[in-house]
Computed example of a mutant assay.
Amino acid sequence: MGMREELQAELAEAFDDPDGLADAIKPVAGSRTVKGGYDPVIGGTVPDSIIYYTGRGMYGSYLAKEIDGSRIQTQDAKLLVLQSELLEVREGAVTDFPATPKIGDQISGHRAINVTEDPARATWTIQLRK
């Protein structure tokens, strides 16, 4: 088991632990509209499509010293999500396909302003704004 898998397993255990983070963990639901366009293979226009994903994460806020009023605003939220648990939803069912959040996604009623991952590629940190 590599460092990434170990870190994800430890974090998932902490997310589940009633004496750990379990009370702070909330469901996460995201979506992204992918613009259609001309497809030369079919010789026509492809309609817009929506990608849905789901997982769980921990919402937090930014420290006062991080808030600059421009890039990070007072009402912004910080969301930490395990990469291994953020999965695509297709035809109403959660798949085994990992999802990658992107700037502009709608996540639990907020818009993703910034998306980063930790060096081990175990978690996403997403800046959310209403």
Rank of each mutant, 00 (worst) to 15 (best):
E5T: 14
E5V: 08
E6Q: 13
E6A: 13
E10C: 06
L11F: 09
L11E: 01
E13A: 15
F15S: 06
D16E: 13
D19R: 01
G20C: 09
G20Q: 09
L21Q: 13
A22P: 00
A22C: 01
I25M: 12
I25C: 11
P27Y: 04
P27L: 06
V28H: 04
S31V: 00
G37F: 05
D39I: 01
I42C: 11
G43E: 03
T45S: 06
P47D: 08
S49I: 02
S49Q: 08
I50S: 01
I50Y: 00
I51M: 14
I51C: 04
Y53A: 02
G57M: 13
G60V: 08
K65G: 05
E66P: 04
I67F: 11
D68V: 04
G69L: 14
Q73K: 15
Q73Y: 00
T74F: 10
D76I: 04
L82F: 08
R90F: 03
A93D: 09
T95N: 10
F97S: 12
P98K: 07
I103W: 11
I103Y: 10
G104N: 13
D105F: 05
Q106H: 03
S108K: 01
A112H: 04
D118T: 09
D118E: 07
P119C: 07
T125M: 03
I126V: 15
